[in-house]
Nucleic acid binder design. Structure first.
Lengths: 261, 261
DNA sequence: CGTGCCAGGTGCCAT
DNA sequence: ATGGCACTTGGCACG
């Protein structure tokens, strides 16, 4: 990686430096004092202050304040970034077509610009996604209940996708909704919709519904009982442990959240 | 704003530079080659590559790849950032207590570090938030329906908050759920829950429910009809225009999305 | 602190 | 493009 720092003495010079980064598709970081206008799906104004502006090679623009995780303004993958100097301000407009949105950054002062070309071909591996947990449970349904058999995964029904479509040891249809974090009322209602949809096709059968999650909110549990559904707690860190040990990787799950309820 | 660039010749030197930024609560940008481990609510690994790492004064950590809006790994407001050199790698651990999560960045090479103190006391003004739209509609309920009267805003009921609690010209209770973007099935179900909750208290009254949004998904509209609820389209850009003209600011709504359906 | 809910949510994948 | 849904969602307000 090569990083180049610039300290432009004028806004005109800054324009050239920024334009160079855009055409050569470099990653750029700008430290400057600016005001910002955004209009599109929403609209916002940000009055003057020092900010960190990142422009990536795909045209993504991020404006960061000195605190907080989220950028205060942004533009994901803009088609077009235009530059100009107007009334002593360097104006950067990042335009996006769908949805039609514009981010306008007006710099009154630019302190530093850095250019860099990052060689990043790293692989990003994610564990413990809902998909991984679903996959594990579909192959190990007895984790949920002894005698359970998986019939279908991600089964399409009218209102959406059923995570696991199973039968229990008594032959009843069991519909399972998996959540990797605390299950909310929304999850319970989602499950209810699936059951109602399946009931249409098999009006005589008894259909069970189980929310499978590491924990559940109080009101969601009440709703579960009211709707005659069930809740089954699972231990996410336990699943993680099993999966990782199989994959011959050392286990590092000291921080994996333990479920509480 | 003052920006200082460092090009540490060793990882030990880099540790000192980073520590200095942390103790003096500066904003720091690190260009380096690293591998990353994350464990907490989820878990992930990122193999070696060049990245941009931002550490803010509140301990937020962002790891950016050369493309895309979202950071590949992050930590929002960590309690604790520790540094060490292990096996020729600079290890930065950002710990968060609730939820318990750890982000471990292992740098094999650090190219550049920049420190900066940003003077950002700018005011961020957001327009067209659901709150602003709700406020407007509560004061101008006839936008939704002639003769509608607002009784309560953000009324607390058991399942949550009712956006607008109104009565129509015939004295019927009308519960309104506002969405600033396309209303989904979730929005409809949310409204249904509120109506059921209110019905408990007034079992004899006819209670109407209206989804108010610039557009609605096809399946959500079907659900609306099935549940005998209503949908009323509103023109967001029109509301924006009225609000802005009142606030004596020039209107800049060329980019404000026009609703379609 | 948990629970609920908005967000310019973003991202991924399906039709 | 639209829709349905997960996300280390983040963020805020409220009990």
């Amino acid at each position: 990686m090569k990083v180049i720092h610039y300290n432009p003495s004028s806004l005109e010079e800054a324009v050239k430096i920024i334009r160079d980064a855009l055409t050569s598709k470099k990653l750029m970081v700008i430290y400057g004092c600016c005001t910002i206008i955004y209009e599109g799906r929403g609209a916002s104004r940000l009055t003057q202050g020092d900010r960190l502006v990142i422009v990536k090679r795909d045209g993504s623009v991020l404006v960061h304040r000195p605190f907080g995780y989220s950028p205060v303004n942004w533009q994901p993958e803009t088609t077009d970034i235009s530059l100009s100097v107007e009334n002593g301000e360097l104006v950067m407009k990042a335009l996006r077509l769908t949805p039609r949105e514009i981010l306008e950054i007006r710099f009154t002062k630019i302190y530093t610009i850095t250019h860099a070309i990052l060689d990043d071909r790293g692989e990003f591996i994610e564990y413990l996604s809902e998909e991984e947990i679903r996959d594990y449970l579909s192959k190990n349904p007895s984790t949920i209940e002894e005698g359970l058999i998986t019939i279908d995964v991600e089964k399409r029904v009218e209102p959406g996708f059923i995570d696991l479509y199973c039968r229990d040891r008594n032959g009843n249809v069991v519909i399972i909704e998996i959540k990797r974090t605390t299950a909310s009322k929304d999850a319970v209602l989602q499950l209810k919709r699936y059951i109602d949809a399946v009931k249409k096709y098999m009006p005589r059968e008894r259909i069970r519904g189980i929310i499978v999650a590491p924990s559940i909110s109080k009101s969601a549990l009440e709703l579960t009982e009211k709707l005659k559904l069930e809740y089954k707690r699972i231990d996410i860190s336990q699943i993680y442990k099993v999966l990782r040990s199989r994959q011959r990787g050392k286990s590092l799950l000291h921080y994996i959240g333990k479920a509480k309820s």
